[in-house]
Simulated scan of single mutants.
Amino acid sequence: MLANTFGRTMLRLYSRSADSLCGAVSNVGRKRFIWTVACKRRTLSVRLNSDERRQQHAFLPQGSTRAVHQTTVDPDELKYFQSLAIKWWDENGEFRALHAMNDLRVPFIRDNLLNVHKAHHPGKPLAGVRVLDVGCGGGLLTEPLGRIGAKVLGIDPVEESIGTAQRHLSCDPDLSERVSYRACTLEELSADMAEREAGQGDVLFDAIIASEVVEHLADLETFALCCDHVLKPGGSLFITTINKTNLSYALAIVVAEQLLRIVPRGTHDWEKFISPIELERRLESNGFSVKSVQGLMYNPASGAWTWINSDAINYALHAVKLAEEPQSDPQMGKPDHSAASHT
């Protein structure tokens, strides 16, 4: 009964205006929370940061091959997750919402990959599929993907989290044949693959997963560029993250962190949230085509996630890396237009 009531309440919040939402937050004891001022400050900050980024990228040659000079790691985020590294597998602890999210994100990944990889293996539908789990933490999503047949590499810059993942994996010797971990960043893995195998297709991944990760990154452009480097043409990129709206600030930070304590206080920074439109723009500029965006919602009363029609708070995105442009014919000196190319 409580879960149904909470669910209906959350859905009603999606249809309210920012002003109405501000009043709702105030009514639960946050009278000193000045909604309008907070939103204006954040909007101004976002615009200033966007202007700075545009000025920095204005000096890059159009269409040039960019090297990875930045890092995706935010030192503050690193310290934060180091403090939580031993708690990943506590299903009733700080990461309980991520445990529950597997009920949606595992089928979302599996079903989209099965549309591409037609081979059927009873009990192991993703057998033969190479997956990279970026920001894997303690392996909460890595292990379930391995159990349905995928060969998964989980990477995370927090060595303590990788240690937790490896210890948990050791409890299932059969799974260790399909799941492995490495303490590194995505840009480090990208550089190592380029040097070791010179980008050969047989070492690239069929899919990349970044679930609840991009809202913690220091440089989203570097993330997208590295994904392009390590993913096969036609490969899939799966992202779950939080939209950048007034509603997401109210529910993901004020309600979830400060009032209900669903996640530890300080887990999220609203400035790092990104809208589906902005994320799609970033991905398309790095050779991806977004295929679907679906909204989802967590109900803390029932402890379950559900798909919803609105992406105003959380959303899942599936993108595909486009095939490379046709190469120029060295004899004719003209590009080969025999096949349609992607723009």
Rank of each mutant, 00 (worst) to 15 (best):
V293C: 08
N243Q: 06
S236N: 10
T306R: 14
F288I: 02
N102F: 07
T241Q: 01
K31D: 01
D156S: 14
K244W: 01
S17V: 02
V106W: 04
L104M: 11
P107V: 11
K272P: 00
T5E: 13
Q62I: 12
A67W: 06
N299L: 03
V254W: 02
L2I: 14
D336A: 10
V37D: 15
D219E: 12
E325L: 15
H121C: 15
D19R: 13
A198Q: 12
L322N: 11
H57C: 03
F81M: 08
K40M: 13
C136F: 03
V203I: 09
A67E: 13
P330C: 04
A304Q: 14
I109G: 01
W89D: 11
V263K: 00
P122Q: 09
I155E: 01
E188W: 04
R96F: 12
N112G: 13
D76S: 11
S17Y: 04
Q166A: 10
H318G: 01
A316G: 08
V230F: 04
T267C: 00
S45N: 12
H229W: 06
H268G: 01
G234F: 05
L13G: 14
H117T: 05
K31M: 05
D329A: 10
I253D: 02
E94M: 02
L132V: 09
G7R: 13
E197W: 15
S161H: 07
A218E: 12
L322Y: 01
P173V: 04
H268Q: 06
P276D: 07
